[in-house]
């Protein structure tokens, strides 16, 4: 890896950290919950995405489990 790529990666990582730090602000006033997301139902999109990822991981685990079971049968 040359110097320029390294510097690029460092800059990207650093600006990501800054972005994380500056991405939010909190004031006094009422506590802000994500009520809008609940009202317009967008929260279900988030639930669907996470469930899909979970399903993918579980299916992958089940496949590995089956493969190991098959190997166990062959080696016993």
């Amino acid at each position: 890896m040359n110097k320029r790529t390294l510097r690029f990666i460092f800059t990207m990582a650093f600006s990501f950290c800054l972005l994380l730090a500056g991405a939010q602000d909190a004031g006094q006033g009422p506590v802000e919950m994500a009520d809008a997301m609940r009202q317009n139902g967008k929260i279900y999109v988030v639930v669907a995405v996470i469930l899909t990822i979970l399903a993918g991981i579980i299916l992958y685990l089940v496949r590995i489990d089956r493969k190991v079971s098959k190997l166990e049968k062959e080696s016993l």
Binding site: A26, V31, E32, M33, A34, I43, V46, V47, I50, L51, L54, I58
Partner: peptide, 20 residues
Amino acid sequence: LVYAVVGGLLLPVPALRQLE
């Protein structure tokens, strides 16, 4: 785990300052 995702995102939680 499915319950933790669905319930975790949809069931009510207390409104706390800073944590929200």
